[in-house]
Structure formats: structure tokens, C-alpha cells
Design a protein around this nucleic acid. Sequence first.
DNA 1: TCATTAAGTATGC
DNA 2: GCATACTTAATGA
Length: 234
Amino acid sequence: MPRLDESLLTGLPPFARLGRPEIREILDQAASRRYDEGAAIFREGHDAETFFLLLDGYVRVARTTADGDQVVVLHIAPGQLFGIAPALRRDTYPATASAAAECIALAWPVQLWHDFAARYDGFAAETYRTVGQRLGEIQGTLTQLATQAVEQRVADALLRMANQSGRKTDAGIEIAFPVTRQNISEMTGTTLHTVSRLLSAWQKAGIVRSTRKHIVITAPHRLVELGSAGGPES
DNA sequence: TCATTAAGTATGC
DNA sequence: GCATACTTAATGA
């Protein structure tokens, strides 16, 4: 296996305050792993043996409800840590992670997390910060689920994905990983049929353009109007 | 307003 | 050509 380059980590928040030799130490303890689209990375409830840094691709994090429904909690973009159960003081994973697109990730044994937190300046603080941000995001979508109409929730879900993974093209902002209508329904607590109808309507209205597993938002401002910012209510 | 049922078309390995 | 993704209409809570 080729030696990993320090440039992989420089500039990323958890490692921002570290010098080259420290980053070298961290990299030398990492294993790089590849996952095909759809592959499971870890499962809810299993022993958290490893934490990860996503180098390339997108990870979908989901929880399973009592009656077996999947709920997509969030997506992880390149450069982010995930599977950081130790930061939550847990020894099992709180959710299931799978590759939304083909992924490359660095993996470390959990025991090293405490080691890193103790030895490297800013590592713990930065990871707690991202955990806090994610909790805030999850809380936001939860209250949305309870208070907002389906159309607003789907509009916001598209905007969230575009914000995190959006890559600008001439046609508009494209969501950079494959998404099915089923996936979107799992993020918004609705059915794939409703999502399909909404996307069809929005396509006719010129707001989005979608083909299978692929969505481009051609008029983001109009989606914002449909979302929590300015929906039909109030 | 939205889920469900059901029955269809399109797409890609 | 089969499984998967997606569309659409009808019905009813």
C-alpha cells in the first residue's frame, strides 16, 4: 500500500493546528479503505471499533425505527470525520453508515481517538464542534418534520444536500452523489410517490432537472421560497 | 393534504 | 431481459 500524503489532512479542521510531523504520525496509523456505492461502512448498535475520515465520496447515515423504516439522518461530505462514537462517549455506533457514492476513507482504531484528543491541540475541540453542528442540524430537521408540510420539507432536504455537496454546473447546482426518491422520502418522512410527484411538478416548473439518481437544482431561489423560509403558511 | 394501492414506463447491468 | 428507478391516476383517510 502506498504511503499516504500529508496534504490529505492539512487544512482540515481537526488537524488545522498540527504541524507536518504530527500529521505524519497520524497518517502512519491510518488505514485507507474503499467502499462501493451502497456498501455498508458500519451498522447501528455494533461495537464502535473504528472512526473514519472521508477523503472522497459521500456517506449516508441512517437509523432504523422500531417498525423497520429507515430514516436518513444526515450526509457526510469529504473532509469530515464520521463514526466518532468516542466523542459521544459511546462504545457502539448510534446509526448505520453506508456509501452513498463510491467512497475512500481513512480509518483508525477507536483507542487512538483518546490518544489524539490528548496529544494533539485542537483535535478534540474541533470534533466536538462538528458533533455539535450535526446535532443542531438533526434537531432542526426533527422540528421541521413535526411542523412543516411535506412540500417544504422536501424542498429543504434538496437545499441541504445542495449546500453540502452542491457542485455548480452551467445548468444549476447539482447534487454530487446519487439520490433516489426513496432516499429523499427517508429524509423527509414521506413516501417515494409524493417525492416523485413533487420532483415532476418542480421539473415542469423549471426549478429542478432530474434523471435517475441525479438531481440538478436549476432555480435554487424558488426552492428556498418553497422551503421553511417562505412556505405557504404564515 | 397526504398515504396507499396499483399499474404502468424507463433505465441500466 | 430482468431488477431497479421512476411516473401517474385513482381512492380514501
